[in-house]
């Protein structure tokens, strides 16, 4: 475990951070909690000579669950524990709680989790291991080791936070070279679907905050992992639902841990808007979502099982919503599980 020497910058403002990123363009990484970037550095997955630490920038620490604004440096631990988050954004709190172990969640940040490096058995290895394997598409090589003759990389988005935030329709504030911009969270991820890119942020752009608008959505998050703790997801699913007068006006589903980026199932859920949630919707949705899942064998568990569990979660979570709905149309009862 050996990191090449690097310079550590500790800017106090976003402007300063972006300027530093521009100055060292091509040889720089932002450092948030460090739980992803540091192991990567020590394994030689990233070889940059400049790290820009974001923890000293007050604006990135904004934590306003009432208004639904969370700075990128918000720790996973605070998302998990904050009573207001727990009440208003159930799936967010469940997902934060399901990540790694408690000590890791102290350091790990919301921004870091959203932009976490995609994972693959052939990539998340030491420099020695990868060299002995002659590299892969994502690092030091030219061939994919998972899919023979694969021309793209299948490394998996393995964060916990994107699915719930996507299901709740989050937007993100981004500080780029042309200034501040706000866009849907979906846009953070590469549409091309190549695992070499963990996200679609241009180099030097900085994720500032995540915004959630509607605190009245029902939401759930369920995660498949090998053990009770502390593993990465090998499949996860989040749902956000809202009905007004018995008709869906918000219905979103997002899947993590399966593809190179979190998958948002808008084309499956959108047609149901304006209609009531029902068994028919559940059946059709589960089937359509199942058809969208194509995991490849780059994590420990069998791919057909990962697909099965994710659709199973979807079915039980939707059923739970339906059961609740039949009692009263309400929100914010915790749903989801980690298994």
């Amino acid at each position: 475990m050996l990191a090449d020497p690097f310079e550590l910058h500790e800017p106090a403002s976003i402007a300063e951070a972006v300027a530093l990123a521009k100055r060292y363009c091509g040889d720089v990484r932002f450092l948030a909690g460090g739980t992803d970037v540091l192991p990567g550095l020590f394994r030689g997955l990233h070889t940059v000579r400049h790290l820009i630490y974001l923890g000293r920038i007050p604006e990135l620490h904004v934590f306003d669950p009432i208004r639904g604004v969370f700075g990128a440096q918000t720790s996973m631990a605070s998302l998990e524990r904050d009573p207001v988050v727990r009440q208003r954004f159930v799936a967010v709190s469940l997902a934060a709680h399901a990540a790694a172990g408690p000590a890791l969640r102290t350091s790990a940040t919301l921004g870091g989790n959203l932009l976490v490096d995609t994972r693959c058995t052939f990539y998340d290895q030491s420099r020695f291991w990868r060299e002995a394997n002659e590299g892969c598409l994502k690092a030091d090589g030219t061939e994919c080791r998972v899919v023979s003759q694969g021309s793209r990389c299948y490394a998996v988005y393995s964060g916990d936070m994107a699915p719930p935030l996507l299901a709740l329709g989050a937007t993100v504030d981004i500080e780029g070279l042309e200034g501040r911009d706000s866009k849907p969270l979906e846009d953070l991820y590469s549409p091309g679907g190549d695992g070499r890119l963990s996200h679609a942020l241009p180099e030097g752009a900085l994720l500032v905050a995540v915004r959630l608008r509607d605190p009245n959505l029902w939401s759930s998050y369920s995660k498949l992992r090998a053990r009770g703790a502390p593993d990465f997801p090998e499949g996860s699913i989040a749902i956000g639902i809202h009905e007004t007068d018995g008709r869906l006006d918000h219905f979103r589903i997002a899947v993590g841990g399966i593809d190179t980026r979190p998958l948002v199932m808008n084309e499956i859920t959108r047609p149901w808007l304006g209609k009531p949630m029902s068994d028919e919707v559940v059946e059709a949705t589960v089937e359509s979502v199942g058809r969208r899942l194509h995991p490849v064998a780059n994590t420990a568990l069998l791919t057909d099982y990962r697909k099965h569990v994710v659709t199973r979660f979807l079915r039980t979570d939707l059923a739970r919503y339906l059961a609740l709905r039949s009692k009263e149309l309400t929100s914010s009862t915790p749903a989801g599980r980690v298994g």
Partner: peptide, 18 residues
Amino acid sequence: TRLMNPSLLEYRTLSPVE
């Protein structure tokens, strides 16, 4: 001959929960 999981994260001993 290649060991795929030479780490405590991927060599999965039981967690206290199990």
